[in-house]
């Protein structure tokens, strides 16, 4: 073979078949696996052994930073840099400072949620070997795909291919690097 193989990919028609196959792949001991579906499948997380993301903690952190930034900004402006009495209120008038701090909490948390998700997912990633499989274009339409990477410890081209074919897929593809 001239071309380097990134992994093997099996195509399925229904989510049930994909989840069943993913479970067998996990039980067979494969670690470097991935599944592709046209919509989120909750069952696949358990079937592939995907651990819960740390994203919620990052978002919480973003929110806390936003809150502190909001309060800090207003403290800096009204207490430190240019103390001025407006409407007879104290320099640090917390009730009046809540709305901007609240909005900044949400703004920072939202930025972390979106860009944190993209960052953890490694996006943007214009090129990926899976796109080399022609049928993979259907992963965003109706088909379900299961991938075992060549990097996996127990990967062996012939063995793994035979194993994947035993999972009842529509077809098994070589994914070229």
């Amino acid at each position: 073979m001239d071309k380097k193989i990134y992994g093997l990919m099996a195509e399925f028609d229904t989510p049930t078949e994909l989840v069943d196959a993913a479970r067998q792949v996990r039980d067979a001991g494969y670690k470097k696996t991935d599944a592709f579906s046209p919509f989120p499948l909750h069952e696949i997380d358990e079937a592939l052994g995907i651990r819960r993301s740390i994203l919620p903690f990052l978002v919480f952190g973003g929110g806390v930073v936003g809150l502190l930034a909001g309060l800090g900004l207003q403290w800096f402006v009204h207490v430190w840099d240019y103390p001025l009495i407006v409407g007879g209120r104290p320099h640090f008038s917390l009730p009046a400072f809540i709305p901007p701090a609240y909005e900044l909490t949400i703004l920072f948390a939202a930025f972390v949620a979106v860009f944190g998700m993209l960052f953890l997912n490694g996006l943007p990633q214009p090129y990926h070997p899976v796109f080399n499989v022609e049928r993979f274009a259907l992963a965003t339409r109706e088909k379900f795909f299961l991938l075992i990477e060549a990097k996996d410890e127990i990967y062996d081209y012939e063995e793994t291919r035979k194993f994947m074919e035993s999972l009842n897929p529509q077809e098994v593809f070589d994914v070229e690097e």
Binding site: D45, Y127, T140
Partner: peptide, 16 residues
Amino acid sequence: WGWRGSARHWHRYEIA
């Protein structure tokens, strides 16, 4: 952004 519908991506996507 090169979205490919990976299960790991969907997982984080849904959380986000």
